[in-house]
Amino acid sequence: MKQLFVATALTVMLATSAMAEPAAAPDAALADPVAEARARELFVDIRCVVCQHESIADSPAAIAADMRKLVREQIVNGKTDVEIRQDLVRRYGDYVLFTPPFRWGTLILWLGPLALVLGAGLVFWTRSRRRKEITAPLDPREEAELAEWIRSAGKSDKQDI
């Protein structure tokens, strides 16, 4: 019984140590320093599809590591930067690029902020151009009533003290 327990424990330890052993690192740098520099420049322009606010160069997400590996593989295969970007856009959509291309599908991304600023400016401009409502001055009777009200309010404040 004791031998069975020891054998099971050793099997479990060996299995867990084998699982903990990392596979080939996806972030292994390219041997050619020029190609690696080119890959790193591309990493900065490509958005992580999980983090969304980070480039794949800065993202710790597993998919970012996969995307870095993909970019490096395509550089080794002789693809140009444009071809690599097009492949990523085909896989993940225009959102994967920090600077999406200017076309009908991305028009709102490029012109939306400008339209919002112009619309807000138009609203402020039209509100400032409205006619100000001029208040008519008080007639003598109304002035006398106001003066009486102020005097009576002043007396009641003095009585409260």
Score class of each variant (00 low, 15 high):
Leu4Asn: 07
Leu4Tyr: 09
Ala7Leu: 09
Ala9Ser: 10
Ala9Thr: 11
Leu10Asp: 08
Val12Arg: 12
Val12Leu: 15
Met13Glu: 12
Met13Gly: 12
Ala15Trp: 13
Thr16Asn: 07
Pro26Ser: 06
Leu30Met: 00
Pro33Gly: 04
Pro33Asp: 06
Val34Pro: 03
Ala35Glu: 12
Glu36Thr: 00
Glu36Ser: 01
Ala37Glu: 10
Arg40Thr: 14
Glu41Trp: 04
Leu42Gln: 02
Phe43Tyr: 12
Asp45Phe: 10
Arg47Asp: 11
Cys51Trp: 04
Glu54Gln: 11
Ile56Lys: 04
Ile56Val: 09
Ile56Gly: 06
Asp58Tyr: 08
Asp58Leu: 10
Ala61Lys: 15
Ile63Phe: 02
Ala64Cys: 08
Ala65Lys: 11
Asp66Pro: 01
Arg68Asp: 01
Arg68Gln: 02
Val71Leu: 09
Val71Ser: 02
Arg72Ile: 09
Val76Leu: 07
Val76Cys: 02
Gly78Pro: 01
Lys79Val: 01
Thr80Ser: 15
Asp81Trp: 00
Asp87Leu: 09
Val89Tyr: 03
Arg90Lys: 10
Arg91His: 01
Arg91Met: 04
Arg91Gly: 01
Gly93Arg: 01
Thr99His: 03
Pro100Gln: 00
Pro100Val: 00
Phe102Lys: 05
Phe102Asn: 05
Trp104Val: 11
Leu109Asn: 07
Trp110Ile: 02
Leu111Ala: 15
Gly112Lys: 01
Pro113Asp: 00
Leu114Thr: 13
Ala115Tyr: 05
Ala115His: 04
Leu118Trp: 04
Gly119Glu: 05
Val123Phe: 01
Phe124Ala: 14
Phe124Arg: 14
Phe124Trp: 11
Ser128Asn: 09
Arg129Glu: 12
Arg129Pro: 05
Lys132Asp: 02
Lys132Tyr: 07
Leu138Gly: 05
Leu138Phe: 13
Glu142Val: 00
Glu143Tyr: 06
Ala144Asn: 09
Glu145Gln: 13
Ala147Asn: 07
Ala147Ile: 07
Glu148Arg: 08
Trp149His: 14
Trp149Cys: 08
Ile150Asp: 10
Arg151Ala: 15
Ala153Glu: 14
Lys155Ser: 11
Lys155Pro: 03
Asp160Lys: 15
Asp160Cys: 14
